[in-house]
Design a protein around this nucleic acid. Structure first.
Length: 214
DNA sequence: CCATAGATGCACT
DNA sequence: GTGCATCTATGGC
């Protein structure tokens, strides 16, 4: 049989736009990851836009490095990075190659593979399965191996599809967990009335490590 | 509900 | 060496 695109499949052109335009359109879409263990799908309820080299809150602010190489590549790919020594976070790359914008997937609702997602999350309650960027990747089974994955190439294990009509209402707010002056722009997007949206936390400078002098 | 502290490894300076 | 685009456990209300 043919591998014709499904009607709800997102296109590369969808991601070739500014991150601030892509981000609200991603709300309500479903990210799926299929592994040997099964399929988990997450309906996105909260995302954040990160711009390129002019955005102090973006990993791309200091230009191309081995880690941020994928952000500067073509749109429609996953940028997965390691955070705080134990977590993985997932972005979808936007804008044409050479421009480093991306959208961080912050939270969602597990709509497929509830049992597998719960097992991966250590038996967490349903609302918490994908509430937070690191929880979301853990529920999906995404880690370093998915960095650079093409999510709009039909047949990839990690993919994004539209689900129903676009969100009727989208709320915006300041970005979460970002300092350096990058938090003040209203580049966080979420759906209203969603219990899976992570609570907003203003950025707090990290206290010194134990044992260091004050 | 809220606040705080500790875990933990990598990218970059 | 410094600083994280975080989460969990624990304690108090």
């Amino acid at each position: 049989m043919s591998t014709a695109p499904q009607p709800d499949e997102l296109t590369r052109d969808f991601f070739a736009r500014p991150a601030t335009a892509v981000a609200p359109d991603l709300l309500g879409c479903v990210v799926e990851h299929e592994t040997a263990d099964g399929l988990v799908g997450v309906r996105l309820t909260e995302v954040e836009a990160y711009l390129g080299e002019d955005d102090p809150g973006s990993h791309a602010y200091r230009g191309v490095t081995p880690r941020t190489r994928v952000m500067f590549g073509p749109p429609g790919h996953a940028y997965v990075y390691f955070s705080y020594g134990m977590h993985w976070c997932m972005n979808l790359v936007c804008e044409p190659a050479g421009s480093a914008a991306a959208v961080l997937l912050r939270a969602g609702e597990v709509v497929t593979g509830h049992e597998l997602a719960t097992a991966r999350r250590g038996g967490a309650p349903a609302r918490d399965l994908a509430r937070g960027p690191a929880r979301l990747t853990q529920a999906l089974g995404v880690d370093r191996r998915q960095d650079g994955s093409d999510v709009v190439d039909g047949g990839c294990a990690l993919r994004v599809r539209a689900a129903g009509s676009p969100a009727a209402r989208v709320l915006t707010g300041p970005r979460t967990g970002v300092g350096g002056g990058g938090a003040t722009q209203p580049w966080r997007f979420h759906l209203p009335g969603e219990p899976t949206v992570s609570p907003y936390r203003p950025h707090q400078p990290r206290r010194r490590a134990p044992g260091s002098r004050e």
